[in-house]
Write a protein that binds this DNA or RNA. Structure first.
Length: 416
RNA sequence: GCGGCUCUGGUGAAGUGGUUAACACGUCGGAUUGUGGCUCCGAUAUGCGUGGGUUCGAUUCCCACGAGUCGCCCCA
């Protein structure tokens, strides 16, 4: 139907736009404090970037991308996430040339073809942060801190911060092999989904809702037992930094990330009342991505937060700012003679940056007064034949109902 | 991609196999003379998500599609 937006998309109406602006302002203010600068990358990229960056075999790449061929016969994809793009931009613009750590953030729409649900749209918005060029675990902690402080500063509570480590290319394969072996032995007890996961991604079996609570799960190989020294020390350090900053967290060794590029630290912040779509922010370290995309070995960490979900959470907790329509003056005119005079008055006020409005419906003065009251204006500026004849304006204070007729020239001073 | 539920005006909703589809809010108009917020009066769905089917007749029954929603999956 012509009058319906595509499935999974939403109009953001004026009432909500205020909320979005408020949220985005919070984001920008916080990033400034933490020293992250805003980057805006294209909404679409070469498909290859996501295939390499996110990894074939992941759900996002295999079944959720909006991919099409453009008129120049290029395969293009609407970005399903922004980390690959940011890394691409980092390399293309040689931001590493500035030396040290590059700290960037972004806010924008992402696209994933998925079945819509509350908190899950096909075009949705993410705020994300990327710190590229430093392997120090303190940066992992900084990123986690930033994500957490962001949510807390909005007033949200009942948040759960989960962290884990998923190892690196040296030790993860060992863990993965052990998991495959272990679950193959217990294959009879696995649900249908997990039997499928056994080959594709055995890590996912760990957080299966069906099998997650079965007895044999407790004895599944733990990542800690497989970690190489470097990864073990790194994870210990991240925990140390978080503790030093007074952050409460739970280590969830079943937490895994859906995108291939994650290494070492993985974390997620959940807001349980949201139900099925409770992950409000998530991220981790991705030391292999820059190289994967064609740069030199460069460590990096980041996270992304889902803005619709955050807005949903804020609404649940009634933390959204109340909309207050503010207008200073409402011009009311009586008779066609006065309309041009009123229009000039309206224009003059606006040129002085005084928010002013007028009802162009050529209605009765009574109707115009009603409109003035509804607009929330502090003053009604009434002009009729008498005012036109004497170059005056009747200024009525809509709160006190007091009114007086004064020369046009004095109006702006009177209502400021 | 899978399963469940839902779909009546601008909004919240009541309702029935067959005359005018409640009620409330909102909106618009009016209650004499150029003035609002309160009150009172009046108007406001030829239409019940879309398309088929069953029936003498469907908004009410059936089917398909669409959209929303909950859960799964996935993820932010």
């Amino acid at each position: 139907m012509l009058t319906n937006a595509p499935r999974g998309t939403k109009d953001i109406l004026p009432e909500q736009t205020r909320h979005w602006l408020w949220l985005e302002n919070k984001i920008r203010a916080l990033c400034e404090v933490y020293g992250y600068e805003e980057i805006r990358t294209p909404t679409f990229e070469h498909t290859e970037l996501f295939l390499r960056g996110i990894g074939e075999g992941t759900d996002v790449v295999d079944k959720e991308m909006y991919t099409f061929t453009d008129r120049g016969d290029r395969s293009i994809t609407l970005r399903p996430e922004n980390t690959a793009s940011v890394v691409r931009a980092y390399l293309q613009n040689k931001l590493y040339g500035n030396g040290g750590l590059t700290k960037l953030f972004y806010v924008g729409s992402m696209f994933r073809y998925d079945r819509p649900q509350a908190g899950r749209l096909r075009e949705f918005h993410q705020f994300g942060v990327e710190a590229i060029g430093e392997k120090n675990p303190a940066v992992d902690a900084e990123i986690i801190l930033l994500a957490r402080e962001f949510l807390l500063s909005l007033g949200l509570n009942d948040l759960t911060l989960k962290i884990n480590t998923v190892g690196c290319p040296k030790c993860r394969p060992i863990w993965r092999r052990k998991l495959t072996e272990y679950f193959t032995e217990n294959a009879d007890e696995l649900c249908a989904d997990c039997r499928r996961r056994l080959e594709k991604n055995p890590l996912r079996i760990l957080d299966c809702k069906v099998d997650g609570f079965k007895d044999f799960m407790d004895d599944a190989p733990k990542i800690e037992t497989c970690l190489c020294d470097e990864c073990r020390e790194h994870f210990a350090a991240v925990k140390k930094f978080l503790t030093a900053a007074g952050v409460e967290f739970v280590v969830d060794n079943r937490l895994v990330r859906g995108l291939d590029y994650y290494t070492k630290t993985a974390f997620e912040i959940q807001y349980a009342p949201l139900g099925a779509q409770s992950a409000v922010a998530g991220g981790g370290r991705y030391d292999g991505l820059v190289r994967e995309i064609g740069g030199s070995d460069t460590p990096a960490v980041g996270f992304a937060a889902g803005l619709e979900r955050i807005l949903l959470a804020l609404e649940l907790q009634r933390l959204l700012p109340v909309n207050a329509k503010k207008i200073t003056a409402f011009v009311v005119s009586g008779g066609t003679e006065a309309e041009a005079y009123a229009f000039k008055l309206l224009t003059d006020l606006r040129r002085l940056n005084i928010p002013a409005a007028m009802d162009f419906g050529s209605k009765s003065m009574k109707a115009q007064m009603k409109a003035a009251a509804k607009s929330g204006a502090r003053f009604a500026l009434i002009v009729g034949e008498e005012e036109v004849a004497t170059s005056t304006v009747t200024v009525k204070n809509l709160e006190t109902a007091a009114q007086e007729r004064i020369p046009v020239a004095e109006v702006s001073a009177k209502i400021i």
